[in-house]
Design a protein around this nucleic acid. Sequence first.
DNA 1: TATTGTTATACTCTATAACTATA
DNA 2: TATAGTTATAGAGTATAACAATA
Lengths: 168, 168
Amino acid sequence: MADPVRPEVIDGQGIAIRPFEQSLPIALLKAREAAMRRFRPLLADHDLTEQQWRVLRALAATDGAAAVGEVAERTFLLAPSLSRILVNLEQRGLVERTTAEHDHRRVDLSLTTEGAALVRHIAPGSEAVYQHIEASFGAERLRRLLRELHDLAAIDLDAGDTTAEEAS
Amino acid sequence: MADPVRPEVIDGQGIAIRPFEQSLPIALLKAREAAMRRFRPLLADHDLTEQQWRVLRALAATDGAAAVGEVAERTFLLAPSLSRILVNLEQRGLVERTTAEHDHRRVDLSLTTEGAALVRHIAPGSEAVYQHIEASFGAERLRRLLRELHDLAAIDLDAGDTTAEEAS
DNA sequence: TATTGTTATACTCTATAACTATA
DNA sequence: TATAGTTATAGAGTATAACAATA
């Protein structure tokens, strides 16, 4: 189904490879960086890193409490990273960790009143960023882009080993 | 033009904010991670980090030599990061640094013969990854996605301060 | 004085493994 | 034995500032 090599372009040094500008990972990185540039000052005002905000946002979206593992998955953070972030957020009084009743291995997370207040305080600014992006880029276009990104992420999950074989 | 807050959803705790799943930065992050997951083993086989590969790839795409600043911009790396990466790549004999003749402040970069050979060696595997993505996701769809990502990154460059004002 | 690039430093995240405590 | 989380550790990148050399 896939020809071994079908380069779109031969580059300056006679190497058969796609143009650097068509690199998907870099395009995703740049788009992400451009988007984050607008969110970052918002978070910096409250001494939040991007990842800390992800955690707060995930908990805000949760009705009640969520286990650490769940939050790790939703925020796309590794457990060790999340653990350290939780220490920080707990010390700052934004998040609460409580051992689950029925299963003492599990730790449930929830926003404190302060944590919820902080999210509520930041939310309008975040919404404003989206409004701006929608205004310049197009609301429908943004929705479509989000769908495509989700699909790309999902599709890429299956058949993870074809590459390695063809590459060796 | 933009209503202060027009939440699409009120979340579990009564906070007016977009659903976590519709977060653009996270969607971009996950898509990127999914794509990189396929490239990473390829690079790991040759002890290359993603960023080191970006530099090699940028130089491969260059006809002749490129200044450090140029490469920093194209690879989306900060100068200090790039400097350290260059030390590494130079020690491994993959990249060459030479002071520019007319301007002794400038340092020109180029692939060594070995560096070019390495890129040439990895290229087919990289191309295979793209073939796979195109096969599952659609070639035309991928092209369109790349265009949209470029547009998003570009659009977001202008009018950088609206946010900060509305956020405070 | 401005520019190009490097070095210094502090911080954060990623990633893997080892460990603790439950179950 | 397996699972949920945490801790330890190594490594790398980001970001800012300070610096050296050159223009």
